[in-house]
Design a protein around this nucleic acid. Sequence first.
DNA 1: GCCGTTTTCGGCCCGACTGTTTTCAGTCG
Length: 564
Amino acid sequence: MEAAGRRRTNEQIARTLEFMGQLLEIAGEDAYRVRAYYRAAQEIERQGQPLAGRTEEELVRIRGIGKTLAKNIIEIGRTGTFPELEALRAGIPDTVIELLALNGVGPKTIHTLQQRLNIQSIEDLEKAAGSHRIRALKGFGERKEENIIRAIQQYRQYTGRVSRPEAEAVIGRVVAAFSPGRWDVAGSYRRGKSTIGDIDIVTTDRFASVRPKLRSLAEEMIDEGERKTSLRVGEMRVDIRFTEPGQYGSMLLYLTGSRDFNIRLREVAMARGYRMNEYGLLDRSTGVLHTFAGEEEMFEFLGMSPIPPELREDRGEIELALRRQLPELVDLPQMRGDLHVHTVWSDGRLSLEEVARAGDAMGYEYILVTDHAGTTRRCNAAALRKQRREIEEINADHSCQLLSGAEIDIRSDGSLSLPDRVLADLDLVVASVHSGFQQEQDVVTRKILSALDNEHVDIIGHPTGRLIGRRPPYDLDIARVIRRAAETGTALEINASPHRLDLDDIYIRQAKEHGVKLAIGSDSHRQNEFSNMHCGIMIARRGWCTAGDLINTFSLDELLEWSG
DNA sequence: GCCGTTTTCGGCCCGACTGTTTTCAGTCG
């Protein structure tokens, strides 16, 4: 049953509490009270079940939520806001809150600017800086004023997070500045996130030796220190930490994050009598600093299993590592095949023969050929019959067996682009949405539900339809889709193209927890795209997938039996 | 505002860099 009426989602509740935190900050309230709101918002975002409608007694059981926040959450559930927030908001315009987004401008600065110069918006701030009224303030100066002007310019052309290939282009330019030696990309890139906000790098190189090259390739040097240097390359911020080999492990651990993960891990260290930082573990009673060349030694020293980077989000992995009960995450060698590949029969560049040879080279048992197919497409029912005969001939000469499949369209009205009798002849069928991206949530959701209900459809391709940096996901009630997929035994795709990575990690985990199987597809159109598979594996690991969650780990016989 | 294998009060993760001042506040990750 769907919840009746318009119950607030956890996302909406979290945003409201976060907004309260920002208001409190600008109002100059106690920083710990501010943090309590942010912390509660984070905690709510990671709750699997909706909070709306829960009682105060139920809410205070959630970490970081006490009586006051529980009451506020209940009020948000009812009205979308709460009295304290409205009272504060009356005194602080939205345009003032927007100032928080400027680099180098924080709540204290905003508080002062508002009090002294009556700055109410970015426009006000720009005028004040232009007429040199900022530098006249006590505690401010010429440099601060220049930095504010630059921050406003950057904010206006800010583009947000980028795809992994875009980040890789920047990484390549930066590491070219290093001398031979050890370096690792850390941060969200190492954790395998689908989108990258900034780039973090650890190196044993010296600041002095890389400085000239960094200066010549950077658009801007943000910080220049011997331990920590930050620069801007194109639109991306790059943070570099220079470290000794003997402390490499603690630095890599620190810089990999996530932020929430680091905070929880420090609490674990604290409980064992250590103060944890990027240089090691400081014994609080003896003052001795224990150092670690590798991350694993540091985890073991704290009495826990090493945690794979993809899990480091403080979503329960620390507790499991302490009990040495971390899941055995799926890994690339367990993949027995690719379940989404295009050929020259639709918009791909590869012949069937080339796909089979690529499969042999990668050691796959099978590749599902999924050309775009439909009654009005070039690849129609007749073409598919011909393709199947060709596949059978090719399979005789290869250890990797091609499977006859198709990527069919889920049309705007919910119908499929091929009739059931054609689908019945295929080994596996992928059904994807390629049109109607602007439809309303209920319409989009229902057309995918009807595809799930078709007994011949085995996999829903790129379920949310997003293109990273280019197109947002269509408005979809994923929870409904996951529940129906569980009922019909249909798999959801993890499209491994780094420009899609769809499903994304949190939905993968939800699907897995509902018993829904997942299918990684590289969506290859060219030779070099088969390696997309490793991106799909990363996202699957971020979704806590073990081998059994992915139908790619099935043998050929198991796969065909699963599809029925 | 939250929380308790040192605690119901007094803490709350930790350090680097910049800018504005001469010892530190603010911001950031």
